[in-house]
Design a protein around this nucleic acid. Structure first.
Length: 322
DNA sequence: AAGATTACCTGAAGGC
DNA sequence: TGCCTTCAGGTAATCT
């Protein structure tokens, strides 16, 4: 499932391959992924040049403009892979600007790969001046939505209730947003209004690395605990970006290559297997409606002393892995 | 009023 | 073999 690192890799790919190119056509095979309608999106975007790709949490904003009155932007921005990803970018001085907000939700995928063969889950085919770009989404949860400019003519990357990106926010600001929460820290990490980008995989990985039990109330955590969680969440996501993201079930990159961060996972979907640090059997329980994977020894239950009651810690045998 | 639950979808996997 | 159930989880809407 795409979380911050996977979405960041999509952003890098779109900047590398598509910024500066004109959208010359669109084949809508399933219009349900487009908002407010397939017709509106097609009418708004076709003929314009992709000028900017921004990310906030799991949201991507694709900004389009007219091809005339362009100038090279450059600006010396160096992508995470060390390539100057804005080398081909252009900035529109004035004229028409439009933007769409993309969220991949659970199973959305973007392919910029001439060898890709569309299947029945491929809902959109973009023609970027001869370069085909495919949008595929097995479960049809993802959305590509036209967004209106605000009063200043700018486009918000994410909806207003979404908090700052987890890789952008500072510790003090983040602490200010979680410290008063009585909800389990796992729920606070998943709350996109607190900070955006963390999903179930990286929340579990961050809590394991910080040695904090997922059910611990956020408000019960001392400053050093919060600091460890904050640092662990950012570190694990930065590492995942460098490894091309996590492939679980079906995340692959824009060329169809699976990310290779999965083998680095310490707890996610490893319940029933031994902890890599202490050999204790990893456990699983439900927090905030989602399965949470943790080590009962490395991450002791809140309130201390006893291990969690068997009724709340459900062990399960490993399921088949793809 | 924050926290919990459900709807939205499809495919994989397990049980029988 | 094949039908049925459960599970996966991001977000919005609904419930408590």
């Amino acid at each position: 499932m795409p979380e911050l690192p996977e979405v960041e890799n999509v952003a890098l790919a779109l900047r590398e391959c598509l910024v500066g190119r004109r959208l010359t056509g669109m084949d809508v095979r399933f219009g349900g992924v487009l908002e407010p309608s397939a017709e509106a999106v097609e009418k708004a975007l076709v003929g314009l040049v992709l000028v900017k790709v921004l990310r906030q949490g799991k949201y991507l904003l694709l900004e389009f403009g007219e091809g005339d009155e362009c100038r090279e932007a450059g600006a010396g921005y160096t992508g995470i892979r060390g390539k100057d990803v804005l080398a081909h970018s252009v900035t529109i001085e004035r004229g028409c600007r439009r933007a769409v907000r993309l969220h991949l939700r659970m199973t959305g995928q973007i392919f910029v790969d001439p060898a890709y063969i569309p299947d029945r889950h491929t809902h959109l085919v973009f023609d970027f001046d001869g370069l085909p770009v495919y949008y595929r989404d097995i479960r049809k949860f993802g959305r590509l939505a036209l967004v209106a400019a605000d009063a200043d003519g700018a486009f918000a990357v994410a909806p207003p209730h979404v908090g700052p990106d987890m890789l952008e926010i500072g510790f003090a600001a983040w602490r200010g947003r979680v410290a008063a929460r009585r909800a389990p820290i796992k729920a606070a990490l998943l709350d996109q209004g607190v900070a955006a980008g963390i999903g179930n995989i990286y929340a579990d990985e961050a809590l394991f690395r910080a040695r904090v039990h997922p059910l611990t109330p956020a408000a019960a955590l001392a400053d050093p605990d919060l600091r460890r969680i904050f640092n662990a969440a950012r570190a694990v996501m930065r590492l995942a970006i460098r490894h091309g993201g996590t492939t679980y079930l079906n995340f692959v990159d824009f060329r169809g290559q699976p990310g290779n961060f999965r083998r680095k996972l310490r707890v996610y979907q490893r319940d029933g297997e031994p902890c890599r640090d202490c050999r204790e059997t990893l456990a699983r329980l439900m927090v905030a409606g989602r399965s949470s994977h943790f080590c009962p020894r490395c991450q002791p239950a809140p309130g201390g002393r006893k291990a969690r009651r068997p009724t709340t810690t459900r062990l399960r045998t490993p399921r088949g892995r793809p």
